[in-house]
Amino acid sequence: MDTSPLATHEDVLLREDDGGVVVLTLNRPAQFNALSEEVLSALQTALDEIASDERVRCVVIAAAGRAFCAGHDLKQMRANPSQDYYETLFAKCSRVMQGIVNLPVPVIAKVQGMATAAGCQLVASCDLAVAARSATFAVSGINVGLFCSTPAVALSRNIPPKRAFDMLVTGRFISADEALSSGLVSTVVPDAELNAAVATLTDEICSKSPVAIRTGKAMFGQQRTMSLEEAYRYAGNIMACNMMAEDAAEGIDAFIERRKPIWKGH
């Protein structure tokens, strides 16, 4: 396993590559991994590199220390009190979140401690989220006079509107189990089992055809924006194309012959 910090002066993001799995670890534990400009830039660089690397099978976004992510760096924001600065900052953050959504491979949030405001947005932007049972979630900008408008975009695409709006206007923290029941996270495990649960999930993803996984992620996101009729037409075309892939032929033949498939796609 190769472990190396990205080229940032604070080493605010660590990257590990292991067998097709890339782990990006937010590394500002003393600041509860707040999303400073430097963190956002490091994340964007990493996402851009991963997007063009066909060897990558899935990505895990993790965090050092007791918290997953406390949202934007409020001290840095207050040190730059101009609307132009804020618009640029939020555009940079939005690009990162969309980069996660648009990445061609699954992205898993590995959540311990609190995930608040843009930290909760980060969880919501990932394809899957595995949370420790003690984890908590909130979009708490309202408590400091700031409605979490950009986090609301990701949140409202994960959970029912009334639950999302309740979180947005109250700033109330919800438990990992509440996050699971509302659809914000996909799995909740005992704290001591978080590492093992994420490893099991990445192993499962990496055991599948890379062609099918990449096809599926792109298709799943796209069809959600369509009408039912459009979605079926689009999905049928995608599935027909997928059937023509070498991996699909190999997988079906292996099933018929009762053997393990040997994937060749990237």
Results as ranks from 00 to 15, higher is better:
Thr8Arg: 06
Ala34Asp: 02
Lys208Glu: 11
Ile205Arg: 04
Ala63Lys: 04
Asp177Cys: 04
Arg15Leu: 08
Met97Lys: 02
Ala176Thr: 01
Asp48Asn: 13
Tyr86Arg: 13
Lys75Thr: 10
Glu178Lys: 02
Leu201Gly: 02
Gly236Val: 03
Val189Tyr: 00
Ala67Lys: 06
Leu155Val: 12
Leu6Tyr: 04
Gln112Trp: 07
Val105Ile: 08
Cys69Ala: 13
Val105Lys: 07
Leu35Gly: 01
Ala199Cys: 02
Ala115Leu: 12
Leu24Phe: 01
Ala42Gln: 01
Ala109Ile: 08
Val123Gln: 05
Arg214Pro: 04
Ser140Arg: 03
Ala62Pro: 03
Gln112Pro: 00
Asp191Cys: 03
Ala79Phe: 00
Asp17Gln: 10
Asp48Ala: 08
Ile159Asp: 01
His266Thr: 12
Arg15Glu: 15
Arg163Tyr: 09
Met114Asn: 09
Arg157Val: 00
Asp166Arg: 06
Asp73Thr: 02
Asn102His: 13
Ala62Phe: 00
Asp247Tyr: 01
Gly113Pro: 02
Met243Arg: 13
Ala235Cys: 14
Arg133Thr: 11
Met219Lys: 10
Val139Met: 11
Val139Asn: 07
Ala154Asp: 11
Gln31Leu: 14
Gly145Ser: 06
Arg57Ala: 04
Ala218Thr: 12
Met244Asp: 14
Glu178Pro: 07
Cys120Trp: 00
Arg258Ser: 12
Glu87Ser: 11
Val21His: 01
Val198Gln: 01
Gly251Ser: 10
Met167Arg: 10
Ser36Ala: 14
Thr88Gln: 15
Thr215Leu: 03
Ser227Asn: 07
Ser41Leu: 09
Lys208Val: 02
Arg258Val: 08
Phe137Trp: 06
Ser134Thr: 13
Ala63Arg: 04
Leu228Thr: 14
Ala176Tyr: 00
Thr202Val: 09
Val96Cys: 04
Leu228Lys: 11
Leu146Lys: 12
Glu204Lys: 12
Ser94Tyr: 09
Arg224Met: 12
Phe137Cys: 09
Arg157Trp: 10
Lys162Cys: 00
Ile159Thr: 09
Ile238Ser: 07
Ile100Pro: 05
Ser134Tyr: 00
Asp127Lys: 06
Ala34Arg: 09
Ala212Leu: 11
Asp127Thr: 09
Val107His: 06
Tyr234Asp: 14
His266Asn: 05
Cys148Ala: 15
Gln83Met: 14
Ala249Ile: 08
Glu257Ser: 12
Val169Glu: 10
Lys208Cys: 10
